[in-house]
């Protein structure tokens, strides 16, 4: 039983990172109809940026801050203006293809600088706690707490602040939002900026485990994507639920079912959701338009 709780807990920690990436994914979708196939690379790039700043001798907090600024400019503003805006009129699949291209370019662009994995400093000490027979690492606790705080913070921002509500209005109905005098392009940009910040945070939490490598985004992107679909990618709470389900599910499956098929659990759930509840567990149903 202690094993089970241990697996559950570390699954929750991993899942909360998936949730961070998935949250950005759902926000982008809601605000601008963008399905970002480069979401994993949006986490990988900040990891390398932080390492680069650190290699110039900057302390970690400063390089994290600079990375956020850079990410908002590149993964937020430039991504929106350069790719999403011009493609918006063609439709969703064109954006999907473009972000696939983007992910290939980013992954192999980074690979040009070297294919080896770089170690990444952890925020947390290498400590292990024993709570009622269950051993948990400080990093698991810290990751879970920080990721949850970020997800809840983002939710609160969207629900409680004027800007956040304006962003939600844009996500629900762009036309009426603009009639109400909301600056739609700016709100959409804010969404892209939040996605960039969440990606930086995810990079900070995940890289110590995964190591900074050009292809680290590949599996992370897939998991975030599964999480977003399972939870419902027109609902931001769904991203959290989906992330935790995927994290816990793969951890338990690896231990109790088969390590070789551990990815199949998230996959099976994903397929069931797609086919029987395509709007996701918490998502709103989208009407078929005539």
């Amino acid at each position: 039983m202690a094993d089970f709780f241990q697996l559950l807990f570390s699954g929750l920690a991993t899942g909360s990172i998936y949730a961070l990436a998935a949250l950005g994914f759902t926000l982008l979708w809601q605000a601008s109809g963008t399905i970002n196939f480069a979401q994993g690379e949006f986490v990988m790039l900040p990891a390398f940026a932080m390492l680069a700043f650190a290699s110039f001798g900057m302390p970690m907090p400063l390089s994290f801050f600079l990375t956020i600024v850079l990410a908002i400019a590149v993964l937020g503003w430039a991504f929106k203006r350069g790719i999403v805006d011009p493609l918006f009129r063609y439709g969703m699949m064109q954006i999907v293809v473009a972000t696939i291209g983007l992910s290939i370019a980013m992954r192999n662009g980074v690979r040009l600088t070297g294919a080896e994995a770089h170690p990444f400093p952890s925020l947390f000490a290498d400590r292990i706690y024993n709570i009622a027979g269950v051993t948990v690492t400080q990093s698991d606790i810290g990751t879970l707490v920080l990721a949850m705080l970020l997800v809840i913070g983002t939710q609160a921002f969207l629900a409680r602040t004027i800007t956040g509500r304006a962003m939600q209005a844009v996500a629900q109905n762009t036309e009426s939002a603009s009639v109400l005098g909301i600056n739609v392009p700016r709100m959409i940009f804010y969404t892209f900026a939040i996605n960039a910040i969440l990606a930086c945070a995810a990079a900070l939490l995940v890289t110590p485990v995964y190591l900074a490598k050009f292809d680290m985004g590949e599996s992370l992107g897939t998991k975030a994507f599964f999480a977003a679909v399972i939870g419902g990618f027109n609902n931001s709470r769904g991203a959290l639920l989906g992330g935790l389900i995927v994290g816990v599910g793969e951890n338990l499956a690896a231990a109790y079912v088969s390590a070789a098929y551990k990815d199949a659990v998230a996959l099976a759930l994903f397929m069931v959701v797609i086919l029987f509840k395509p709007q996701g567990l918490l998502g709103r149903k989208e009407e078929r338009k005539v």
Binding site: L87, V97, A98, I104, A105, G109, L112
Partner: peptide, 20 residues
């Protein structure tokens, strides 16, 4: 190959924008 895939990925993005 790395260079090729980098250029290829970028080209896909540009192609979508100019020649969807």
């Amino acid at each position: 190959q790395d260079w090729y895939l980098f250029v290829f990925g970028s080209a896909v993005v540009l192609l979508m924008i100019w020649l969807p």
